[in-house]
Amino acid sequence: GAIDFDVNEAKVLVDDKGKPIDIVPRTRGASDKIIEEFMLRANETVAQHFKWMDLPFIYRVHEHPKLKKLQQFVSIVKPLGYTIKGSLEHVYPNELSAIVDASKGTEEHTIISTLLLRCMQKARYDRQCLGHFGLADEYYTHFTSPIRRYPDLLVHRCIRNFLFEQNYEATAHFEEVIPLLAEQSSFREREAIDIEREVTDMKMAEYMSYHIGEEFEGMISSVTQFGFFVELPNTIDGLVHMTELTDDYYHYDEKNLMLVGEMTGKTYKLSDKVKVRVISCSKKDRTIDFELVGQKARVKKKKTIQINDKKVKTNPRKKGKINKSKRFPRKRR
């Protein structure tokens, strides 16, 4: 019943100077999957053991997705032929997993996996055993990486104290510190993920800066009120800003996540295949800008605004920073 989101992750290849020479999708072989299965089983076993010992412990929890997000997900995938039977308020992981499995081998598989991943709540650490929705597990913790993650180290300390040394005098100590350590570990994990994303985005922008003017085929992976993002086969994504769509005036349909042309009725929606050209990249801002191949360039006039009795020209192409983490979440168990 576990949900295998199967979302592509980028692998950045660099030379001895740190310059990115290629971006490729990270692949998981048979041996990776076997090892991961052993790790999952170890985590489940340790969590279940301590749950029934009723001792202070730190668990990895993943709660039920929010109803509103699930409703939006269903409204988007239903026209593609995917439905969920029963009530969304009491949906089970295997029902969502069935949709992901059914989409495998289709063009919309990546989009469906990404959309479903956005529906999920963030996994976190907690003193209580609240279960892991994504893994369809009643008991779960992080045990297998004590040299990499602090919560795993804390689990090993609990095992040593309670199982090997049978030092139950430490119960009060762990009871007091674990809620604080769980909260701190969850916070630090989010910070680490954000930093990892920023570095990857920076390297992607640096890599694509060597390909200005080149054309690529990609798929629309996200639609917003200011344009849409196109993901290339190598996992790099860039923004086609609304100002680059010069053949019509487009409205943002938030419910169906698409742009609709006012006069032509033309739409840009998730999973559409498009051909784009790289027009600009910023390593500092970690952004990549595309334009659609075949669109006529629009003349961008600078507007003049009044600030403290002085006229200042502004550039309408200048955009603020975009929080990409909300659009492309990573698969984290």
Rank of each mutant, 00 (worst) to 15 (best):
I236C: 13
T144M: 14
L239P: 00
L153Y: 11
D194N: 12
V199L: 15
K122H: 00
K33A: 12
M120D: 00
D22A: 14
D16M: 07
I279F: 00
S271E: 03
F73E: 06
N234L: 08
D309M: 08
T267H: 02
G218A: 10
Q71T: 14
E175G: 15
H109R: 05
H156Y: 11
V177A: 01
R157A: 12
S87D: 15
R148N: 15
P151M: 07
A10V: 04
E231V: 05
V77F: 02
R332V: 15
L80W: 13
L257P: 02
C158E: 11
V100T: 10
L117V: 03
E214D: 08
R197Y: 14
T106E: 10
D152N: 11
A2P: 12
D152C: 13
I288H: 11
M242G: 12
D289L: 13
G218S: 04
F73Q: 05
K19L: 03
G134A: 02
G261E: 04
E176P: 00
D126E: 04
H132S: 01
P146Q: 13
P65C: 00
I193K: 10
V7K: 04
E183C: 02
A2N: 09
F164Y: 15
G294F: 06
Y207H: 10
Q225V: 00
S282C: 02
R124A: 05
Y207C: 08
K69N: 15
T235V: 12
V155R: 04
P316H: 04
P146G: 10
L117F: 03
R149V: 10
L153W: 07
N8Q: 11
L80H: 05
R160P: 01
L88S: 02
F57E: 02
V293S: 08
K255H: 07
K324L: 09
K203L: 15
N315D: 14
E95I: 00
P233I: 02
E262K: 14
A30V: 14
K85E: 14
Y92G: 00
Q306D: 15
V46A: 04
T27N: 14
L245T: 11
I307Q: 12
Q128G: 05
G18K: 02
N315E: 07
K51A: 01
V177N: 00
I112L: 01
L130R: 06
E198N: 14
T83N: 13
Y92A: 12
V100L: 10
A2L: 05
I23N: 06
K51P: 00
D247E: 13
E175L: 06
S221W: 04
A2F: 07
R330A: 09
E36T: 09
A172S: 14
E169A: 15
P56I: 05
D201R: 15
I112R: 04
S209D: 05
V230K: 06
E9Q: 09
H132G: 04
K11G: 00
K122A: 00
V312T: 12
A47Y: 00
F5P: 04
L270W: 05
M219G: 03
A47T: 03
S31T: 14
E291K: 14
F57W: 01
S185C: 08
E217D: 15
E206Y: 11
T314S: 06
R60K: 08
G18T: 02
F57V: 05
M263E: 15
S97D: 08
M204W: 01
L259H: 01
F228K: 05
M53D: 02
